[in-house]
Amino acid sequence: DESNKPILLPNESQSFERSVQLLDQIPSYDTHKIAVLYVGEGQSNSELAILSNEHGSYRYTEFLTGLGRLIELKDCQPDKVYLGGLDVCGEDGQFTYCWHDDIMQAVFHIATLMPTKDVDKHRCDKKRHLGNDFVSIVYNDSGEDFKLGTIKGQFNFVHVIVTPLDYECNLVSLQCRKDMEGLVDTSVAKIVSDRNLPFVARQMALHANMASQVHHSRSNPTDIYPSKWIARLRHIKRLRQRICEEAAYSNPSLPLVHPPSHSKAPAQTPAEPTPGYEVGQRKRLISSVEDFTE
């Protein structure tokens, strides 16, 4: 099969070098950035008060330690540790928490760990991170309901609301924008112990962030949302095809390698009803078989 044979790379090609550099910018793992907010007593309706908090309760602090690993920003190499735009020179604080497994990295933009500057009256330095995160974990210690939209931002799609209760338990629920209701189930609340709260809140936030990324990708319907490693695979396959075309153009005697095509017509299947918005969006999480067989 010609399409699977190794090909020689061009010795000097600026377009090839640019493509390789672009490939280096696509990590081999999925990345997520999640905002974390603490809401104190009497702050449920005040964005400024929430963003001005420099610490929270003892249970909130224990919750943070379970979310991930504490890292010092100045020691991080952005090409190895995903920071979601946090500055490593102290502009966004000294520490944050991050978490990773074999296929993804997540960083938490924690408002109480970011510096509260006197010259920044409206807390814009914090909002440029927190307001651009799709998902926020809100530790609501106010005793009042927290409403979506209290923290203004164009991309605040989903809130994971943590409400501490007695007996070391917590109520965990989801809020989302109306255009996200087909992807996020907000109907079920959970009672979770303090011990298990970081794991549950983190998983709910990661799932909500993946759904938000799919939702946000609708602005470019021709580019369905893939995982990062599938995006790398697609980029490599496009690069291979372009090299083959350039080689055939410079030397017409060489065969032009095309991806294999299936001449056999697909079997006719009964027509199915058109899937609704929710089903269609969830299918976009699934990769096409052509990603692996071309």
Rank of each mutant, 00 (worst) to 15 (best):
264 K>D: 15
66 G>R: 03
99 W>R: 02
119 V>Q: 10
164 P>Y: 00
265 A>T: 12
221 P>D: 13
239 L>T: 06
100 H>T: 15
153 G>K: 04
25 Q>V: 04
126 K>I: 04
158 V>H: 01
97 Y>H: 04
125 D>I: 08
178 K>G: 09
139 Y>G: 00
215 H>K: 07
223 D>I: 07
249 Y>K: 06
188 V>I: 09
68 G>K: 05
90 G>E: 12
256 L>H: 14
79 D>P: 08
98 C>Y: 15
172 V>K: 00
263 S>Y: 06
166 D>K: 02
17 E>C: 11
222 T>C: 07
111 A>E: 03
124 C>L: 15
129 H>G: 04
179 D>E: 13
128 R>H: 07
211 A>N: 02
238 R>F: 10
10 P>E: 15
117 K>P: 11
8 L>M: 11
70 L>W: 03
27 P>L: 04
94 Q>S: 08
197 L>G: 01
69 R>T: 15
79 D>R: 06
122 H>L: 12
225 Y>Q: 13
90 G>N: 11
185 D>C: 04
86 L>C: 13
107 V>K: 10
268 Q>D: 12
284 R>I: 10
90 G>K: 08
223 D>N: 10
111 A>M: 06
65 T>V: 05
294 E>N: 09
129 H>E: 07
255 P>E: 13
63 F>C: 00
143 G>Y: 04
97 Y>E: 03
206 L>C: 04
39 V>P: 00
254 L>Q: 15
20 V>T: 09
40 G>N: 03
68 G>D: 02
145 D>V: 06
138 V>P: 00
205 A>K: 00
131 G>P: 03
112 T>C: 01
37 L>M: 03
123 R>A: 14
186 T>H: 07
67 L>P: 00
224 I>E: 07
136 S>N: 03
293 T>W: 04
94 Q>W: 08
258 H>P: 13
250 S>A: 08
224 I>S: 10
273 P>S: 11
27 P>K: 05
164 P>F: 00
138 V>L: 02
229 W>R: 06
221 P>W: 04
105 Q>W: 13
235 H>R: 07
197 L>K: 00
66 G>V: 01
209 N>M: 02
150 T>D: 03
48 L>D: 13
75 D>G: 12
67 L>Y: 00
59 R>L: 01
131 G>Y: 15
115 P>I: 03
73 L>N: 14
117 K>Y: 14
253 S>R: 07
34 I>V: 03
275 P>Q: 12
147 K>H: 12
111 A>W: 03
21 Q>Y: 10
240 R>M: 04
166 D>H: 04
13 S>C: 09
39 V>I: 06
283 K>E: 15
153 G>Q: 05
218 R>P: 04
168 E>N: 08
263 S>L: 08
216 H>D: 04
86 L>D: 15
148 L>W: 15
222 T>N: 10
220 N>M: 06
20 V>M: 13
8 L>F: 12
175 Q>Y: 03
101 D>C: 02
122 H>K: 11
131 G>H: 15
132 N>H: 14
181 E>F: 05
124 C>Y: 15
130 L>A: 04
44 S>P: 03
124 C>W: 15
151 I>A: 02
28 S>I: 12
23 L>K: 08
117 K>T: 12
37 L>V: 07
274 T>F: 11
25 Q>W: 06
165 L>M: 09
50 I>R: 02
246 E>I: 04
268 Q>F: 08
205 A>R: 00
2 E>V: 08
273 P>W: 10
216 H>C: 06
110 I>D: 03
83 L>A: 14
47 E>A: 04
101 D>N: 02
136 S>A: 12
49 A>C: 04
223 D>K: 08
286 I>T: 14
74 K>S: 09
138 V>G: 00
